[in-house]
Amino acid sequence: MSGERLDVAIVGAGAMGAATAWHLARAGREVAVFERFEPGHVRGASHGASRNFNVAYAEPEYLSWLRDAEVLWRELEAEAGRTLLTTTGIVTHGPGVDHAATAAAITSAGLAAEVLDAREAASRWPGLRFEGPVLHNPTAGRLDADTSVAAFLTGAAVAGAAETRWNTTVSDIEVHGDDDVRFTATDAAGSRRVRARRLICTAGAWTQKTLAGVRGVSLPALRVTQEQPAHFRPLDPAASWPGFNHHPAADDDATSWFAAPVYGMLTPGQGVKAGWHAAGPETDPDRRSFVPDPALTDALVRYVRDWLPGVDATDLAEITCTYTSTVDARFVLERSGPIVVGAGFSGHGFKFTPVVGRTLAALAAA
């Protein structure tokens, strides 16, 4: 096997790896991104055309990150010359959230929030059914995931010495010093040994497999699940749809049967997307069935029939993806020697992508 020397190697060309490459390349660093699959693959968590840019958080640190994230999304948009973040507004409802307290936290952070009663919300968005108060964030919106990942990688390549190596697997990682990490890269041409000053692992569902046995690296528990949202046909193609989140409570008869909280948004050209948040079965990313769990499908159809009167609950197209989650849904952003890890984004990380990339790039630069 021949040798190769790099400044920064990134394992995984999904959203977080792509954003990290963008920040590093703009800072003048030489970056190689290694991705085991082809561009636009559907085996991970970053594919698809829609993610909610949801600001309904009560934690000050998340709200601070959201302010920065919006600035960075707009910066990437201007650079790419394409719309990535569309302002649609997002509504959050259900008894599982203190809407007034969350609205107060959001407005204290300088973001827009209002609390509506169910009648006012239904008059604005007749495609959704509401019971109880509704938190509305008018400046929140929808991100185009596929286009965003491509924009980060293109921006990194344009900014400097950054390249993406598709269909290339990284294995046998060894730490030889604080600025010396070595690994095997395997593609169609064969295997070669590579040496880098930094290795950043943003491998999503493959994080534990990629870093298993690497000296000095200790990961928290990461649970990989297969999730299965679906697109439903809207009854009125011209209707306006905000993004939405619906939080159940165990003592509420109307929502206690939910499999999990619900999220959704309109995906242009595909329909209204709705899904359970982190309700799917645990899976091995290399042995996924890609077949939706029929019980979760039935429950989702029931939800849509009860709570989304603006769509046809019988006309749906299911998709699958992975979540890689920590116990407390907090992100793993750590460095150990020459290895930096970004993982455990727990199904709510995409909106933070450019801030996560900035954080991982800073850790690598230290």
Rank of each mutant, 00 (worst) to 15 (best):
G12F: 11
T92N: 10
H93M: 10
A15N: 08
A250P: 02
G190Y: 06
A196L: 03
V175F: 00
A157R: 12
L300V: 01
D328A: 12
T359K: 13
G243M: 03
D178F: 00
G3N: 12
T139L: 11
P237R: 10
A145R: 06
L235G: 14
V175R: 01
A140H: 07
G337W: 05
G94P: 08
E77Y: 04
E282M: 05
D187I: 04
E70G: 08
W257S: 15
H23G: 01
L116T: 10
V340S: 04
L296M: 02
G213V: 07
A103L: 09
T83H: 06
V224Y: 00
L211F: 05
P248L: 02
I10L: 11
T255G: 09
S171M: 06
T324Y: 03
Y57I: 12
P229G: 03
A221P: 07
A185F: 00
G132Y: 07
A105Y: 13
T154C: 05
G155T: 07
H93L: 06
V194S: 03
A254D: 15
R287Y: 00
G357L: 13
L6W: 01
S240W: 01
V8G: 08
F350W: 08
P60R: 09
G141Q: 07
L199T: 04
V214I: 08
S148E: 05
I339A: 11
E30W: 00
M1P: 14
R36S: 10
F352D: 04
G48P: 12
N245Q: 11
A185V: 10
I173N: 00
D298I: 00
R330P: 01
V97G: 01
R198S: 01
F152H: 08
D178G: 09
G357M: 08
D284E: 13
Q208C: 07
V301S: 05
A299F: 04
A162Y: 00
V327E: 14
N137F: 00
H277M: 06
R223H: 03
L76I: 14
I339D: 09
R287A: 11
S123Q: 15
A19Y: 08
W125A: 14
F244C: 02
G271A: 11
S191M: 03
Y62M: 15
T168A: 02
F345I: 10
V214H: 07
M1V: 14
D251N: 13
D187L: 06
R165I: 05
V311C: 06
D68N: 14
F34D: 01
